[in-house]
Design a protein around this nucleic acid. Sequence first.
DNA 1: CAGGCTCCATACCCGCTGGTATGGTCGGCT
DNA 2: AGCCGACCATACCAGCGGGTATGGAGCCTG
Lengths: 204, 204
Amino acid sequence: MNRKRARSSVKTAPAAGEMPDRLAASAFALFSERGINAVSLDDIAAHAHVTKGSLYWHYDSKDALVKAACAHYYRAYNRRINDELTDITDPIKRLERTLDTAVSTCLEDRKNRIFTTEIFSLAVHDEELRRSWRQFSDSVREFYIGLVKAATRLATREVERRVDFLLSAMEGLKLRAQYEPHLCVSSSHKVIVSQLRRVALFAE
Amino acid sequence: MNRKRARSSVKTAPAAGEMPDRLAASAFALFSERGINAVSLDDIAAHAHVTKGSLYWHYDSKDALVKAACAHYYRAYNRRINDELTDITDPIKRLERTLDTAVSTCLEDRKNRIFTTEIFSLAVHDEELRRSWRQFSDSVREFYIGLVKAATRLATREVERRVDFLLSAMEGLKLRAQYEPHLCVSSSHKVIVSQLRRVALFAE
DNA sequence: CAGGCTCCATACCCGCTGGTATGGTCGGCT
DNA sequence: AGCCGACCATACCAGCGGGTATGGAGCCTG
């Protein structure tokens, strides 16, 4: 809080300079594996091949590292979702592709599940983290609204309702997948995607 | 692990005997307010008007207390859901009533949200807790399957799919409600219930 | 009454972890 | 050269909280 003022100044550092990112990546990697409060700052520093002393030069607290790990997660999410849709133009296909990969992620991406679960439980008691997540979630929501709108030409209000329902279902799916193995068999993947598709596309 | 062998024996204790329940209730109350790892055993003991020494006579570890708090939660859930449906006989009405109260719980019951969120984040790394929650979740699933079956006369397989979708949507709703205030306004309540209703009842 | 059991309180330990104090190295600037 | 600031390592602290050792008070039994 008191020391370390420049840091965001000239950033003339020629050789290094990517330490904050490396630390955030290490934090994310460990958090999404063992859980946040099972990971010590020494662990993170060791994973990034530095020591806690230097870690504290870049981040003021463990909280700051958690926020940085979140930012890391947001970036990765956005990047993945954009990569997925390049060279797909048909609106329906774009929506279907998005739903398909989203369901895959929910059912298979264990790191994603663990990390979001941890963040949710922290966000309950951390206003700032909640706002951060809300901002991310809103951007995802807008993205989906755009997809559904392009694919259906429904009224905005109706699209919002459907997207909210979609997102809730996928978030819940992610949660339940971790203790309901019958959801993770490949046959249910198709069923779930078609259910989501119906919610998004079908007329009243 | 080594001491305390009887405990589950004759249970002749005349006056007391409800200490374990009181401790579990205190644990649940505090866990669902401040979060599990923000609550110390001293806090729980104080809330139950005893000391940590006596707490450790009834429970071997904090883990055991968490499991007991879960059992407390399971019981409360089952009791509430049963009370809700007495003197409602029409199958459709039973389903609608259940969905309505479920959505209310997701959107309003803050303690419920916090507790389940905490349990999920612990269950990621605790096999036993995961199994315990899975058993509870299965019983809830069977309950919903019974409701939908009675209301629609669909094939079992199709009912299971719809119920899984319903439960995912509600679980996700509970999560998103804590950082998406626009979901908690009373107008969206009706919309969500009708969406769930459609998933459960409408023909292909 | 002696012994044992249940149940609870007091007092204490100690490892773990977030956080700090401090000092050293290197590269740039005047 | 000589200072300064960015960057990182070493060593250390301190408090919190899970867990333990121990010692009762009450009751039941022989």
